[in-house]
């Protein structure tokens, strides 16, 4: 079953001659365990696509389904629950709350969803430990490195029973080693925990972690990569030439 499905989604801003089509007839589906990257230049509609997929914005036309359920039929409350329970968001600039420790930041979405403080904190600590951040749990974001902060943000996006992670340039503010670590966490979440992920990026090295890369231009999906080939074919002597 598709965790996320966009069917013929369009989004325009403004009216009449001033109207701008940010997305046009975009269809995209993300299955369990799949990591999809969306590549495109600035202004190609990548962030709009992610906002619509994350139910933060409504399409002008077309349908969005999360976990098989059409989002348009959901009440505001149901959408808010979906965003707290099912979807995790990762942003380029981390968006951690500065007055909260790493553990409190990670526990926050669970607490907002009604989980008791103690249970939420335990779940947060477990997730932070899994990401190698157990010892940093009581630190505040401003005392952590960029790579650590982004790992905390990913922990927050995956804590609980999340199924879908949406990441907007998740390693845009990081060096290549930390960027790779972030992509490995997202990749592992898909391959080991069966989550689905959409990663928006203009960076081909990050996109190359994905099972499928979708290319966006002027609001249209213009192309996508073929299903993965056997990587070992690159290591045969014939590949030398």
């Amino acid at each position: 079953m598709s965790l996320l499905e966009l069917r013929g989604v369009s989004r325009s801003y403004g009216e009449g001659s001033a109207s701008v089509n940010a997305l046009q007839e975009v269809s995209l589906s993300v299955d369990e365990g799949a990591m999809v990257a969306v590549m495109g230049p600035s202004g190609s509609g990548k962030s709009t696509l992610l906002s619509i997929a994350g139910t933060l914005e409504e399409p002008t036309s077309g349908e969005v389904r999360v976990g098989g359920q059409p989002v348009s039929a959901m009440s505001r409350g149901a959408k808010a629950r979906l965003r707290r329970r099912t979807i995790g968001y990762v942003f380029q600039d981390f968006n951690l709350l500065p007055g909260l420790t790493a553990a409190e930041n990670v526990a926050l979405p669970l607490e907002l969803d009604g989980t008791s403080g103690r249970k939420a904190r335990l779940a947060a600590l477990r997730t932070l430990e899994r990401f190698g951040l157990g010892e940093r749990a009581s630190h505040y974001p401003d005392t952590m490195s960029g790579g650590e902060r982004q790992r905390v943000a990913i922990a927050r996006a995956m804590v609980g029973e999340r199924k879908l992670v949406l990441a907007d340039e998740p390693s845009g503010a990081l060096d290549s080693v930390n960027g790779e670590a972030v992509m490995r966490l997202l990749h592992d979440a898909c391959k080991k925990a069966g989550m689905g992920a959409v990663v928006v990026t203009h960076d081909a090295q990050l996109a190359s972690w994905a099972d499928r890369v979708v290319f966006l231009r002027d609001g249209h999906v213009t192309d996508q990569t073929a299903p993965p080939k056997d990587p070992q074919s690159l290591l045969t002597p014939e590949a030398e030439t």
Binding site: Q205, S208, F215, R217, P228
Partner: peptide, 25 residues
């Protein structure tokens, strides 16, 4: 020209996917 550029871009990204998989294996 954009279509020509995209054909090459897709091929390069597919190669990069294969290399990334080899490294992670």
């Amino acid at each position: 020209v954009r279509e020509v550029i995209q054909a090459h871009r897709r091929y390069l990204v597919e190669l990069m996917q294969q290399w990334t998989r080899i490294r992670e294996d």
